[in-house]
Amino acid sequence: MISSEKLAYIRDLFPVTKRQLYLDAAHQTPLSLPVRDALISFLTEGYEMAGPKPVWVRRVEDTRATVARFFNASPLEIAFTKNTSEGLNIAANAVPLVAGDNVVLIEGDHPNNAYAWLNLKRKGVKVRFAPLKDNHIATAETFEPHIDEGTKVVTLSHVTFHAGQVHDLASIGELCKRRGIYLVVDAMQSVGVIPLDVKALNISVLAAGTHKGLLVPQGLGVLYVAQGLDELRPAYLAMSSMLNPPADYIAQPDDLAVREDALRFEFGNVNLPDLHALDAAIKLIESVGVAKIHQHVTELGDLLLSKLDALGVAVVGPREHGQRSHIYVLDLPVAQWADYFARNDVRVSPERGGIRISLAMFNNADDIERLVAVIRTGQEENLKLVAIQPD
């Protein structure tokens, strides 16, 4: 677990912890001092040195190698994108699908993953949705009844944004490997919070933005494409995609060979400021360890669940260890409680089933106690309102 001294140090790096009760990491994480300083340093270099692009590009490659370590991947399996949605759309258009092929998703998963594949219906690709009952976790058994000889892709979020389930990628990945199916994973809600080994999980393509568990402002995404999937072709081409980019910057119509690594999906200039920030963020995360972060938010979740039980407040998602991580949706009416939390300077998100509480490395037990006190007061105020209502 994270020691009390280390946790105090981390909290000092996130000034928001001194200003409000921040429980909204599944929406976005606030800036830390190292990330802010990295952005300022980048801007300072830009106006003092007119933009030392070769230096910046070398740093990009250092960050690419660091991201690869996060996933147990090779740097050549990592490309940088704008966000999760762009990565998922790259995957949907790269897989060699033809009319009659089908893709299987989870019913009710994030709509941006669904739309990336539904867009292929115009080409005759069929999209199937596997139902998931009562916010259970998805396993191989969830998908197997919907898979046949025409199934080419299984795709899902690792952690759902709306109830916090941590799906069983291990069994799903084994099923896909056995059946020769691509596994495409949206890791937006898990990267930086849950350890991810793309090789052990048999993931073909993984997409994630960096503004949640990776602590960086919006506008940067990471894309993992497993080595050897040469049949996955980019829908767009730029010089950066080409195997033999022309040194004279004159396109060669007879040479359209693309790179054999993930960088074939990277188009032109990348988000240099955010990549500097990502380097700083990953160093901070690595100073703690993703496994310890996962343990920390899970233990805070244990405390939260016990306190909610005492208050009589139910949660929408799973309660078992291994099936949850840092996202908890409280079964509270959004219309009433969202405004109440905002008035009490508690940062949360309204969600399908109620109010979403999402924890991060900088949260502590005192945050849980403060949240519980706010909820208890809200319950008491609600009871008073009910008591004075006329018959």
Rank of each mutant, 00 (worst) to 15 (best):
M1E: 11
I2H: 08
K6D: 06
L7E: 02
D12S: 14
P15F: 06
V16L: 07
V16E: 09
L21H: 02
L21C: 05
L21I: 05
L21F: 00
L23Q: 08
A25L: 00
H27F: 12
Q28P: 00
T29R: 12
A38V: 12
A38L: 14
G46N: 10
Y47M: 08
P52K: 07
V55S: 10
R58I: 00
D62I: 12
R69M: 12
I78E: 01
G87K: 06
N89Q: 15
A94T: 07
A94R: 13
G100I: 01
N102S: 10
E107H: 13
D109K: 02
A114E: 13
A116N: 05
K123D: 00
K126R: 14
F129T: 00
K133R: 09
A138K: 10
A138V: 04
F143Y: 14
P145C: 03
P145Q: 02
T151W: 12
A163T: 12
H167N: 11
L169K: 06
S171F: 01
S171L: 00
I172M: 03
L175E: 13
C176H: 04
G180T: 04
I181Q: 09
V184L: 09
V185S: 05
V185D: 03
M188R: 02
P195W: 10
A200K: 15
L201Y: 07
L206W: 11
L206P: 10
T210M: 04
T210C: 15
H211V: 07
G213P: 02
L214M: 15
L215S: 05
A226M: 14
Q227E: 15
D230R: 10
E231V: 13
R233M: 14
A235Y: 04
L237S: 05
S240N: 11
N244F: 15
P246L: 02
A247N: 06
D248C: 02
Q252D: 15
Q252G: 00
V258K: 04
V258W: 06
R264G: 06
F265Q: 11
L272M: 12
A281M: 05
L284F: 11
S287M: 08
V290G: 01
H296Y: 09
V297E: 05
E299M: 08
L300R: 12
L305Q: 13
A314E: 15
V316C: 12
R319F: 00
E320I: 05
G322V: 03
Q323D: 00
H326Y: 05
V329G: 08
L330Q: 03
A335I: 01
Y340Q: 08
A342M: 09
A342Q: 12
R343A: 14
D345S: 15
D345M: 09
R347N: 12
V348D: 02
V348R: 03
E351T: 05
I355S: 07
I357K: 11
S358T: 09
A365I: 01
L371D: 04
A373G: 09
V374Q: 00
T377P: 03
L383A: 14
V386K: 14
Q389G: 06
Q389R: 13
